[in-house]
Simulated scan of single mutants.
Amino acid sequence: MDSMRTDARRNYTQLLAAARAVFTEQGTDASLREVARQAGVGIGTLYRHFPTREALLEALLGEGFEALRAQAVELLDAPDPGEALAAWLRGFGVASTRYEGLPASVMEALQDPASRLHASCEGLRTAATELLARAQRSGRVRRDLTASELLATANAMAWAARQSTGAAELSDRYLSLLMEGLLTRPGAPTQDGRGGM
């Protein structure tokens, strides 16, 4: 019985390692048979652990999503709410460019409550909402922006960066430009007509 559990744990670990390698090289639409082959197991073993591609993605991404959520909680105490939001978005951008096709998977999961990835992605939306609201209350970020719009825009920029070499560097550049557009300037009118900061 213990040996069976040990084998199952080993297969699970090998499948995740293989999925990470295959998705990095070929994107999130890569063949699951190729994932199983690289893990050294049959396709049936893969489906016993991960009944769907989405279940595999959820297992693969869950740890990273949780790290982003935890980072957001820590940044809620940062002295500059605008910089805190920018720092979190950079981490989100890097995570979103890890695999080809990932930005689309994240957006689909955010919009589909029945999706297995939805709960993990919803944690990201909650984290983004809290950071954004704090930055907006401080007057550092325009008030007419929602967390969903922010994530959609950041995701789109991550997708655009992923189409070129140097995706991580481009993603950081695009997100910096995004933040420059979102930040209010001292004395400048905000969307509700009041002066910023």
Rank of each mutant, 00 (worst) to 15 (best):
R162V: 01
T165H: 13
D172N: 10
A188Q: 14
T146F: 10
T190G: 15
D192I: 03
S164Q: 10
G193S: 05
G187L: 08
L182G: 00
N155M: 06
P189F: 02
E149H: 07
D144Q: 09
R142Y: 14
R142A: 14
D144V: 03
V141Q: 00
L183D: 00
A160R: 15
M179H: 13
P186N: 03
A161Q: 12
A147W: 06
L175Y: 08
E149G: 14
Q191L: 10
T165M: 09
N155I: 01
L170S: 04
G181S: 13
A161S: 14
L145E: 00
L175N: 06
A161C: 11
L178W: 03
T153F: 05
W159H: 12
Y174Q: 11
G195N: 06
D192W: 05
Q163V: 12
R194P: 00
R185Y: 05
A161M: 13
G195D: 04
G195A: 14
A152S: 12
G196F: 04
L145P: 01
G193T: 06
L182W: 00
L145G: 00
T184V: 11
E169W: 06
L151M: 08
D172T: 12
A154K: 01
L177P: 06
G181Y: 02
L170F: 07
T165R: 15
L145Y: 01
M157W: 15
G193Y: 04
Q191T: 15
L145R: 07
E169V: 13
A168I: 11
A158C: 04
T190F: 00
T165V: 12
N155D: 07
L145D: 01
P186I: 07
G196V: 02
A147S: 13
G181V: 08
V141H: 00
L145F: 04
Q163Y: 04
R173L: 14
L177H: 15
D172C: 07
D192H: 08
G181L: 01
A147H: 07
R194A: 11
A160H: 14
S171K: 03
E180W: 09
R194D: 11
P189R: 10
A161D: 10
P189C: 01
M179S: 02
E149Y: 02
A168W: 03
N155G: 08
T165D: 15
Y174W: 14
L175G: 12
A156P: 02
L151H: 01
L145Q: 07
R173C: 08
A188D: 13
S164D: 10
L175M: 12
Q191S: 15
L170T: 05
R162K: 08
L178A: 02
T165A: 15
S164P: 01
G196T: 06
G166V: 05
M157G: 12
A167D: 04
A167G: 05
G196Q: 03
L178Y: 04
Y174R: 09
A167T: 05
A158Y: 04
G193K: 03
R142N: 05
W159N: 04
R173Y: 11
A152H: 09
